[in-house]
């Protein structure tokens, strides 16, 4: 446990930023503990590694930037509108689309059923049944209609019109 405690202070020890008693505590431990001493050697080598070479910005960033500025100067207002739209591109992300589709389906299902009941007043006709009527009445034979209506009635567990 003490080793862990000592190792957890080593960067501050290297930079001489611990309180006097803590500096002493670490030093005393390091003097007698080979394991922590070795860790100190490695960590201080790591910490004092010569500064990583400065990163140079690739030249083509300027080329792209200059083109962007030119486009902006051409029509700042339009550019800003377009640019701020780019920021909303995230709404086309899959997770958002999945949520939107889910909400649409739920709204359609519950909203649709609710409306059909309202419109038909006391007569309980399900949404599915109405859809079946609209789709099939003109185009199919009577038996198809009755099939479709049976399916609709079974789905809703309700009695339908003869």
């Amino acid at each position: 446990m003490e080793h862990k405690n000592i190792k957890g202070k080593l960067l501050l020890y290297i930079d001489n930023e611990l309180s006097q008693p803590e500096m002493m505590e670490v030093k005393t431990h390091i003097d007698v503990c080979a394991d922590c001493r070795e860790h100190l050697t490695v960590i201080s080598g790591l910490w004092r590694l010569e500064k990583v070479q400065k990163q140079e910005a690739p030249r083509y960033i300027w080329t792209r930037l200059a083109a962007e500025i030119k486009e902006y100067e051409h029509n700042p207002v339009l550019f800003d509108i377009f640019y701020s739209r780019k920021k909303f591109a995230y709404i086309f992300q899959p997770a958002v689309m999945v949520i939107l589709v889910f909400i649409s389906v739920l709204t359609g299902y519950f909203g649709g059923n609710f409306l059909s009941r309202e419109i038909n007043g006391n007569q309980v006709i399900s949404n599915n049944e109405q859809v079946a009527r609209v789709f099939y009445l003109d185009r199919l034979e009577t038996e198809h209609i009755s099939n479709a209506m049976t399916i609709a009635s079974n789905e809703n567990g309700e009695e339908i019109l003869p």
Binding site: K4, K7, G8, K9, L10, L11, L12, E17, I43, L46
Partner: peptide, 15 residues
Amino acid sequence: LFRAKQNLSKKLIDY
């Protein structure tokens, strides 16, 4: 900076 070095020392304990 103090807290960063403290946290980094802890993160590097296992190495």
